[in-house]
């Protein structure tokens, strides 16, 4: 994305500013709520969740145009707007808040990608959860790490001990997310069937109730958004 694109987007945003009113506020609020929820979910789920590229793109785009507004106005304060300083303060505070969310979300994902590097690398199902940048990061990071290990000590140990993803002997070297971890959830929509917990015990999850339960047993409903992580 270069500066021309940013300016173009800014222009189109300014042109659209008038007609958008009540309706767009609602859309923005929903998107913001969604951003907050994906941050909470990513934070509390043991595994990596699919990357919300569309949402993050929209938010980043709006972030950029807000930054532009600040820059434009700090060069030349609009004389006829007496509240401009307060407005800039509000815009700036909001940018800080959104920045925090996005940054925390991305860093959290990087941590999980580092942690479960080999596991994600070995599974197509996991790979599609990554964004393009994250994929790039993972591959390169892994290459660098392998290089480092090789150069510093692996080349000196017997060949059969050089593996980084040895699964023989009953103990796997591959770090996997613990899907049986307990998570706190809130039931949003009616869940028709009983949930299996433990070996073959079943519980009925009631709407609006809060439970601590195994991630694996409710994963399906978290994906379908009938249950949210808290």
């Amino acid at each position: 994305m270069d500066i021309d694109d940013i300016l173009k987007e800014l222009e189109s945003d300014i042109n659209l500013k008038r007609p958008k009113s009540v309706n767009s506020a609602k859309i923005k609020e929903d998107e913001y709520k969604k951003l907050v929820q994906i941050w909470i979910s990513e934070r509390m789920s043991p595994e990596l969740l699919p990357y919300e590229s569309e949402l993050i793109e929209t938010i980043l785009k709006r972030l950029r145009s807000q930054v532009e507004i600040i820059e434009l106005n700090s060069i030349e304060l609009e004389k006829n707007d007496k509240d401009i300083k307060l407005k800039l303060l509000i815009i700036e505070s909001e940018i800080e808040r959104i920045n925090f969310l996005v940054r925390s979300y991305l860093r959290l994902r990087l941590f999980k990608i580092d942690e479960y590097n080999l596991f994600i690398n070995n599974s197509d199902q996991e790979m599609v959860k990554l964004s393009k940048n994250e994929l790039n990061y993972m591959v390169n990071h892994f290459k660098t790490i392998c290089q480092l290990y090789n150069d510093s000590f692996l080349k000196n140990v017997p060949e059969h001990l050089q593996l980084l993803d040895d699964e023989s002997g009953g103990i796997s070297m591959i770090n996997k997310p613990d899907l049986d971890k307990m998570v706190f959830i809130k039931v949003i929509n009616e869940i028709a069937e009983e949930i299996t917990v433990g070996e073959d015990d079943k519980v009925e999850l009631e709407k609006d109730f809060i439970y601590a339960i195994r991630y694996r047993s409710v994963k399906r409903y978290i994906d379908s958004k009938d249950i949210v992580l808290i």
Partner: peptide
Amino acid sequence: MDSLPLIGTNLP
């Protein structure tokens, strides 16, 4: 005060 478009909402 005039309305103000923000990222996560609009200030009415």
